[in-house]
Design a protein around this nucleic acid. Sequence first.
DNA 1: CGTTCCGTTTGACAGAGGTCAATGCAGGGG
DNA 2: CCCCTGCATTGACCTCTGTCAAACGGAACG
Lengths: 248, 248
Amino acid sequence: MDSQFDLAQTAPIPIAVGRTCGAHDCDRCDVRDRAICADLDSPQRASLNRLGRRLTVKAGQTVMWEGEESTLVANVIDGTLKLSTSTGDGREQIVGVVYASDFIGRPFGARTPHSVTALTDARLCLYPRGAFDGFAREHPSLEHRLLRRTLDDLDRTRSWLLLLGRKNARGKAATFLLDMRRRVRADEEGVIELPLSRQQVADVLGLTIETVSRQMSEMKRMGVIALHGRRGVRIVDAAWLESMAEGD
Amino acid sequence: MDSQFDLAQTAPIPIAVGRTCGAHDCDRCDVRDRAICADLDSPQRASLNRLGRRLTVKAGQTVMWEGEESTLVANVIDGTLKLSTSTGDGREQIVGVVYASDFIGRPFGARTPHSVTALTDARLCLYPRGAFDGFAREHPSLEHRLLRRTLDDLDRTRSWLLLLGRKNARGKAATFLLDMRRRVRADEEGVIELPLSRQQVADVLGLTIETVSRQMSEMKRMGVIALHGRRGVRIVDAAWLESMAEGD
DNA sequence: CGTTCCGTTTGACAGAGGTCAATGCAGGGG
DNA sequence: CCCCTGCATTGACCTCTGTCAAACGGAACG
């Protein structure tokens, strides 16, 4: 149901092919004070760093597959990735979108419950799961950050249940745009560059690409938003959008 | 959208009205080895116990309200409760169902993101959030249990996104029944007593009560399940149900 | 044992969104 | 600079699920 884009690009690329480089300098890391390692002191960060490695992935590459053994976890240094699952007959649902400083993978568990695929080129800080688990158990401040982050993820995911279960297409599209406004920085003219294609937006919202397109077009016609090319959106009337998100 | 049942019973009952009793004996607690306090030693459990109190709630009572300040967290000793959110115009979505030994409330956060309402009579082990947070920070083994539990919750919630976003009514109903089979013990004849009314099942699946009812009736007609009264279900052909859950 | 209440089931109908198909258009390559 | 590829938009149609309404039936009560 997702485009051939993903299938074509991800199938032949095992994770080892991503470009890895040796240790990097954690003290100068871009996401140092937002990632889960933020509360570690410099020597602790260094020893965590020794467990892992950097990985650069290109847009479209899949880093982890749904249902496979959970062997890796990672911090996102840079870029945007999607978490997704599929039904037996191939319909896809995106269950999360992660950004710089977010954490991916399944610590303390045998299987990765969803696939992780890069939406943009991305840089990761990759750790073997077993080693990470051990390190985490010995560093409560790390586990604490991970716990808070997981609790936040859970809250956000549960609010998405309300969207998928009870909102109509209009409300879904409006909620999505408001969420993007919070998560993606706009340019000087207030235009947000969506990290997702129309199909991927549909996969987030539990809709078809046609319905998403129709909703966007109609909101544009109404003057709530303006569209700039395929990925650009400018929110013209945020209050109106908010009322739509609640279902009017 | 949920029945008057909830509104009538929950509105006038502030939490303080639930029957509380003094400290209980943690060492003899029913859920002692499954709840998050499982890895504490006896004196640690005792000091946690001193922070909290027992609370007995009746079916229909709401223990926490969506959006209110997060002042309480709790272990479920016994009974079943639902977590729910609503849209501005009153449509409800159940975002989780919790059972004995589960943990409820929002530690390390200002607001409770969803309401918690008892589906059956229930007993809770209630802690002030601030005190619990402090205790948790000082006891990594407790935080570790909480982290694992939260990671499991997140996985389960994400798989529910797939259900709500991409499955049809048939697939939703079938998946729900299979989930109940795992979570609720059947009697000698294999009959599962659902902890949810039809309306509540609808609120879990993002459907209307009529659609749920029709799906159940048709599955009965097909011989996949048998219905016993309002809440009883016996799964006759689990394999068939599983194929329906995947979408055939 | 009958009555009432309320959750559940069933039916008829309508509409939101999915499906299928054609057209439009942005962006990269020759 | 133009063409070509593939995503996006638009349109026509149909299906699934929601809505509204009525009938049913189990449980509690008199």
